[in-house]
């Protein structure tokens, strides 16, 4: 198990957003979490990555190690990566420089030598080709003035460069047109492997046509309420997320 979440709860002030999440992700698999807007998917991703504004209880093991006591950077060193739903702009910080700093910081923790600018560029260019990233974006500031699609691509590029054990992709599909979605999906599929687990967060089943998951989980109101095979996504598409939750009458979301 790369990730084992037990009874994870997260609050902001008095508001409980995650209300006892349980989830296990085996190494080498692709899982998806689906659920309506506001159900707590991004909060789960942020809490796992170490965002400090939440009051968190419960237990999370990453590769057998306690995750919740670690700083965000330590979690990155352990091999956790989050592709943000809303990638952040860093004015004046060159994209290539940012990527190299991140990679070298992670390499240092892994006892590897730093890559110099030349070696890094060669490596990064291969990865850029994988995500079909426009080279001109590399000399710009991180995400500054990027289109929605370019930002998402940049997240996947970072994933491809940092080579984590667990990558959480938060709504990477939103804001992508169909061609871009295909490209990104192709890149993500190329990054699948026996040593890497992917957790896809989405509320559209569309993405899962291109990146076929081993398992699908449904989150509503801060809990995982159902889990199943890849067909669950199709079922949700038809019946809405809340088909099995009798106290709700209106299904939310589910169709593009």
């Amino acid at each position: 198990m790369i990730l084992k979440i037990e009874n994870l709860r997260a609050k902001v002030g008095d508001k409980e957003i995650l209300r006892g999440v349980n989830l296990e992700l085996p190494l080498g698999q692709v899982h998806a979490i689906m659920g309506p807007n506001g159900s707590g998917k991004s909060t789960l991703a942020q809490v796992l990555a170490g965002r400090e504004e939440y009051t968190v209880t419960g237990r999370v093991l990453f590769d057998g190690e306690d995750l919740l006591t670690q700083t965000p950077e330590a979690r990155a060193f352990m091999g956790l990566f989050l592709a943000f739903q809303y990638p952040v702009e860093l004015p004046g910080v060159g994209n290539l420089y940012f990527l190299r700093t991140a990679l070298n910081s992670v390499r240092k923790q892994r006892g590897l030598e730093a890559l110099d600018a030349v070696d890094f560029l060669a490596f990064a260019q291969k990865r850029m080709d994988l995500v079909e990233m426009d080279r001109s974006l590399m000399s710009r500031s991180v995400n500054e003035g990027f289109s929605g699609g370019e930002k998402k691509r940049n997240e996947i590029l970072q994933l491809a460069i940092l080579e984590p054990k667990l990558a959480i992709l938060d709504e990477t599909d939103s804001g992508l047109d169909i061609d871009a979605l295909r490209t990104v999906a192709k890149a993500v599929n190329a990054l699948r492997g026996p040593d890497r687990t992917l957790l896809l967060i989405t509320h559209y089943q569309r993405l899962l046509d291109y990146i076929v998951p081993d398992q699908v989980h449904v989150m509503t109101e801060g809990q995982i309420v159902r889990s199943g095979g890849k067909d669950l996504a199709l079922e949700l598409e038809h019946d809405g997320y809340l088909a099995d939750a009798p106290d709700h009458t209106l299904p939310v979301g589910g169709t593009p």
Partner: peptide, 22 residues
Amino acid sequence: QLFYCRQRGIPEEEATIMIVNG
């Protein structure tokens, strides 16, 4: 911004300096 950098494995102090330099 800080959280984003730290998530990528850039420690807080380095991240701050990077953002200020930017």
